[in-house]
Design a protein around this nucleic acid. Structure first.
Length: 425
RNA sequence: GCUGAGGUAGUCUAGCGGUAGGGCGCAGGCCUGGAAAGCCUGUGGUGCGAAAGUGCCUCGGGGGUUCAAUUCCCCCCCUCAGCGCCA
């Protein structure tokens, strides 16, 4: 969420941003928020004055009693105060709830370079890498190929778990693990510390790191417990330093999260998304960075470059798009996607999402950095996250792009050291 | 799951109806040729104020009793130890 102090001092920036997002309905929220904020502070003065009086009387009563004086008048005055204070507190509580609700729903301030657009069709391509190869045979869809080679079993997974699940078997298990090691090893060279997080976190941690409407659409809740299955390691890692203050020397902190990811993925399914592309459970290596505010835009480009290095290393054709206002969501200030070439669909499909969340997550999570020169001064840090490799989607890309006419699949060279040097699956 | 012990500011610890004290760490200052030691100040959140200042909140969370609760009562959460169960 935005810092109330920022909204207070720069309402025009918040409103201009909402206009850019074509979300004028929320502009009225900003005005109401400012009114409620002013009333809240006014009310705090009233309440504090009452409390001050109550505290003074309590002290006076104590002193008078010790001196053996009559305290009846003081007791009478004191008796009336709690009720007045409670009335102020009740109003204050309502106002703060309203303020909090607005702040939780007003989106992050976008970077100037975010293009305006109504939906994902207006994302702006900024780069292409590689050339899709042409083949003189019919490509099998990746799910069929996996089944035919005994690399996956979708039917039995559906039988025991439902649609969107899979058994991975044989060579694809090795390929999945190889992709994980490939990503972790490359990121380790760039200074990232590998992290395996908890796969379940509680609601209040979740509220700090995600868009609230994702709760209904994406998250699995564990019945009877305050626990949600993580949709990505970004979430537990973001929440990891909740309510903490970093020293400047400890930033930037680069973490490579690795975890299973669980998503309800309510929506359309088709032949090419059926197998491993759109699933309820997959493994992902994620880049996550906590940094000083002044460093985040440089690091955003760094995360994109790391992700690109992974995909160019695999030899997969891809393009990079700058996500437009209509598709970016509430948390990121700027987001790049990498879309990899999927020959069967003759299209680039999303495999990486790389976001600078600036201070939006850090404000909710209350994560700050102490200024080295001014010990008293603390400001919210910035957080960034980017996919490194989501294995299931990359497996699909490899099964399509590296498929041979005999149904075998060439293993990208960079992965072979992790797969007993095998050249083909 | 059971039993017991705990939860006090960054951390450790005292207080157990009347302004939450001390140690360590960290930051700043004094001292010094420079440092160490020593001494002083500060250390969470928030409001008012141009500032100097000044007030309120904070003892795991929520209720209750009281003029006044860290302290007494009720409910809940979490941590640790032992036992039980378990891959």
């Amino acid at each position: 969420m935005l810092d109330i102090r920022f909204v207070r001092s720069h309402p025009e920036i918040v409103k201009a941003d909402l206009l850019k997002r074509n979300d004028p309905g929320k502009i009225e929220w900003v005005d109401d928020l400012l009114r409620k904020d002013a009333r809240s502070r006014e009310l705090k003065v009233e309440t504090d004055t009452l409390r001050q009086r109550r505290n003074a009387i309590a002290r006076d009563i104590n002193a008078a009693k010790k001196a053996g004086l009559d305290v009846r008048d003081l007791l009478a005055e004191a008796a009336a105060l709690p009720q007045k204070i409670r009335a102020c507190d009740t109003e204050q509580e309502e106002i703060r709830d309203t303020i909090h609700n607005y702040l939780m729903r007003i989106p992050n301030i976008l970077h100037d370079s975010v293009p305006a657009g109504k939906d994902d069709s207006e994302n702006v391509e900024i780069k292409r890498f590689g050339t899709p190869r042409t083949v003189d045979f019919e490509l099998k869809n990746h799910g069929q190929l996996a089944v035919d080679n005994n690399w996956a079993d979708f039917e039995r997974a559906t039988k025991i778990s439902g649609a969107g699940f899979y058994f991975l078997k044989g060579s694809l298990v090795l390929l999945d693990l190889a992709l994980q090691r490939y990503a972790l090893d490359l990121l380790a060279k760039k200074g990232f510390i590998p992290v395996i997080p908890p796969y379940m976190i509680n609601r209040s941690s979740y509220e700090g790191v995600t868009d609230l409407k994702d709760f209904e659409n994406v998250m699995y809740k564990i019945d009877g417990d305050d626990a949600y299955l993580i949709a990505t390691s970004e979430h537990p890692i973001g929440a990891m330093y909740r309510d903490e203050i970093f020293e400047e020397k400890d930033l930037p902190l680069r973490l490579a999260g690795i975890s299973s990811c669980f998503r309800r993925e309510i929506g359309a399914h088709g032949l090419d998304t059926k197998g491993l592309f759109r699933v309820h459970q997959f493994t992902k290596v994620e880049q996550f960075v906590f940094c000083r505010p002044e460093d985040s835009w440089t690091i955003h480009e760094e995360l994109l470059a790391n992700a690109e290095e992974l995909f160019s290393g695999l030899g997969l054709p891809y393009r990079v798009v700058n996500i437009c206002t209509g598709d970016i969501g509430t948390v990121a200030a700027k987001k790049y996607d990498i879309e990899v070439w999927m020959p069967r669909e003759n299209a680039y499909k999303e495999v990486v999402s790389c976001s600078n969340c600036t201070s939006y997550q850090a404000v909710r999570l209350n994560i700050r950095v102490r200024d080295k020169k001014d010990f008293e001064s603390k400001q919210h840090i910035h957080t960034l996250n980017s996919t490194a490799i989501a294995t299931s989607r990359v497996i699909r890309a490899i099964l399509e792009n590296n498929q041979q006419s005999d149904g075998s699949v060439e293993v990208p060279e960079v992965l072979r050291i992790y797969m007993n040097n095998g050249k083909f699956l």
